[in-house]
Computed example of a mutant assay.
Amino acid sequence: MSQEFEIVREFEVDVPPEQVWEAITHGTGGYLWPMDPPEPREGGQGPFGSTVTAWDPPHRYTNRSEDVGFPTQSLNQLDYTIEPRDGGRRSWVRYVHSGIFTDDWNNQYDGASKHTNFYLHTLCEYLTHFAPRPVTFTQLQGPEGSRTPRALAAAARALGLADDAAAGAKVTVRGPGGQDLDAVLDYRNPYFIGLRTDHALVRFFGRGNWGAPLGISVHDFAPDADAGAEGAAWQGWLDAVFSRP
């Protein structure tokens, strides 16, 4: 049965509104995934065939799509309101994701809500530590064996993360090829893990609770980053983790 949904989040970040605006309209690869910037006017074309319904830089941006392309959703809208704080040195952001889920409402809402928290946290990490550096983006998906709620815990063990390692801890993890990576564990819950190194954000998505394989995205801000080599290395890591007995 079709039913409307609305996910609302508010947060502050220590950058001016102009930097938040740049990130949500042009710098999306730094924290989400690369996408074409919206046409800068009301009525213009937004990402994935959406329509820009509000355009007031750097304060308000909304896009709306009535042809989402997913069998479980018929309407999608993203709305951002940005206000200056502390004389423009900080920003207050209100984010509203709304629309209509057409099937499996509880599961769809649960996944969208938890993903929202992680994506917005990653946006703040990007703005605070890396923006406006150019990014090399890589996205990977685990094999069928990672399509389970236990997949994220398996990835954590492969990384060498202690069970009691919590967000904010400095850690050394085992990356591709057994390489040690020094990082800050910037996010951790039963669904997602976020690592921040000196030059990258590495995100682990435990999507088995929603019937999907584990995913990894790497947002690398090093000037010599190689998406192909990085993708192959992390894909090999993923495949090895989930091919083990």
Rank of each mutant, 00 (worst) to 15 (best):
F242M: 02
T28Y: 01
F5N: 04
T51Y: 01
A212H: 08
R244Y: 14
G211F: 06
R244D: 15
E66A: 11
L152N: 02
R64E: 15
E39N: 14
N76T: 09
Q3V: 01
Y191Q: 10
A155H: 07
G177F: 15
S243W: 02
R64N: 11
R90L: 13
H199D: 15
P40I: 03
P38M: 05
F205H: 10
D198A: 13
W21L: 13
M1C: 09
F70A: 15
H115M: 11
Y119D: 11
V8F: 00
D56F: 05
N189Q: 07
V93I: 15
P58K: 07
P143L: 02
D186L: 12
T122D: 07
F101W: 09
Y126L: 03
P149C: 02
A166D: 14
N76S: 15
T81C: 00
G111W: 02
I82S: 08
R147F: 00
F11N: 00
F205V: 01
R157P: 06
G168W: 12
D14W: 02
W237V: 11
D239K: 04
R133T: 06
G27A: 03
A156R: 05
Y119C: 08
A183I: 04
A232Q: 15
P16E: 12
L123I: 03
E42H: 04
L78V: 13
G87K: 05
F204W: 09
L214C: 04
G29N: 05
Q19T: 11
R174P: 12
F11A: 01
A166S: 13
A200I: 04
T62A: 07
K114G: 02
Q141L: 01
H121S: 09
V93K: 12
L195K: 02
R150K: 11
T53Q: 07
P40G: 07
V68E: 03
I216L: 08
A225V: 09
G46T: 06
F137E: 03
F204T: 07
G87Y: 06
E12P: 07
F192L: 01
G175E: 12
S217Q: 01
H97V: 02
N117K: 08
E4C: 09
T62Y: 05
H129C: 08
T51M: 06
L152M: 02
Q3I: 00
T102I: 07
I193Y: 10
A112L: 00
P132W: 10
E125L: 03
G99D: 01
L159K: 03
V171I: 04
R150S: 13
T136G: 09
W55E: 10
T116C: 06
D164L: 10
N117H: 09
D224P: 04
A54K: 08
L159N: 05
G178D: 15
G88D: 11
Q77H: 08
W210N: 03
E83T: 08
R85S: 07
W92Y: 12
D104A: 14
